[in-house]
Design a protein around this nucleic acid. Structure first.
Lengths: 212, 212
DNA sequence: AATGTAACTGAGCAATCGTTCAAATATATA
DNA sequence: TATATATTTGAACGATTGCTCAGTTACATT
């Protein structure tokens, strides 16, 4: 039943995401979008319905990419805690080269939009919560193998991470000077609240041994 | 030489700030602005020159207000460290009721604008740096009276504070649940990097005594 | 009261906004 | 090759954008 070669939807959404990520929702016009994704208005509206529709598709694309990245890093890492740290470093440091904005697109969107765009705002909020839940998963996994103190609440640690990542990325954007990001992230994981005291480490090891 | 009653510039800029703070730069139209500040286009352009001019005046107004607030809190506080903590709590917790956006207007601006608005972007960046320098001043003062470890770099602690405030305010905006902000801010100041070990506290006291 | 001028007004400009849709095009099927 | 239909095109719509400026108003000075 398919009749035409059609456009490559993935590539189109990727390009739209790039533009929206860089310029934000309001500063991106449909004309900008037409150029960026090489489609004419009629085709865009047939596929996405509206400017908001394209933006929503971009938010979903970005979210899917982020979660896939976390999973990919987890698989390539020796442990869940190492994976977390790798992801943070990637999100904060590597993102400065090659990405349209050093901000997280979801955070940038939540910062920009108001109640006038309730739907899009909720999509972005929910997406950030999904990413946070991925963190929680990794933290629980880390607690399971004694890499993180069992006493701490995994969801609180995940929230802590979100706050640190967002704060750092925003700070980078405000600052022209060079900031010792690697060191700061190392300290995040070496000190409160991820730090495990030596005594606690022993207890955890004992527990793991008795469990087996 | 003055001929007309003229408008109350302070009140006008305050109202403009309120609107820009809520909706952001791009989503605020000159028509919105005209209504908010009760001025007609001709008068606005005579006074501010352009939409950017009004926005710049708003950024400067907001900055001046922020720094005045820090100084005011310092004068009302028993110590510089208490002042810092009070300001953080005010910026993070109290701002949720009564302000146009729970984001910092300067951070929100830096997040939204791109190179296309270089001038405004630089104004916002510089303003954030000014606030950070106020933090640094308070921290140095706190170090002078032994409230904060002298070994730590004041500018690094100030940067740390900026990152925490920004991260927290952004997180609040993304989250619909209630977050234990008071507890989290308390922990900020009780643990790394503001914590002073008991032993260090004694040393500092000794130094202060020998200095006198 | 008459005059000069600083301050304000708002209709309206060109440009751009998000969006529509009749016409053109390209492919699958007959 | 002819027909049917899925897909794309881009001119153009009404609304809105940032902004201008000739005309009006309100006050200080004479």
């Amino acid at each position: 039943m398919s009749k035409k070669p059609k456009f490559d939807r993935d590539k189109v959404v990727a390009n739209a995401t790039k533009l929206y990520w860089e310029k934000g929702y309001h500063a991106t016009s449909m004309r900008n979008l037409q150029d960026a994704i090489d489609m004419r208005p009629g085709s865009i509206y047939a596929e996405f319905g509206s400017k908001d529709g394209v933006f929503k598709a971009s938010l979903e694309h970005y979210t899917q990419l982020s979660i896939a990245q976390i999973n990919s890093i987890r698989e390539a890492s020796e442990s869940p805690l190492v994976a977390l740290k790798t992801f943070v470093k990637q999100a904060v440091i590597d993102t400065q080269k090659g990405t349209p904005s050093c901000m997280c697109m979801l955070a940038k969107t939540v910062s920009e939009l108001t109640e006038e765009q309730r739907d899009l705002l909720d999509v972005a909020k929910q997406a950030l919560k999904s990413v946070e839940n991925q963190f929680t998963g990794l933290i629980i996994e880390a607690q399971g193998i004694g890499e993180i103190d069992q006493e701490k609440h995994a969801s609180e640690l995940a929230r802590f991470l979100q706050i640190q990542i967002t704060g750092l990325r925003m700070y980078i954007r405000t600052s022209d000077e060079r900031v010792p990001l690697g060191k700061m992230i190392d300290e995040l994981f070496e000190h409160y609240p991820f730090k495990i005291l030596e005594s606690q480490l022993c207890e955890v090891d004992e527990v793991r041994q008795t469990e087996k």
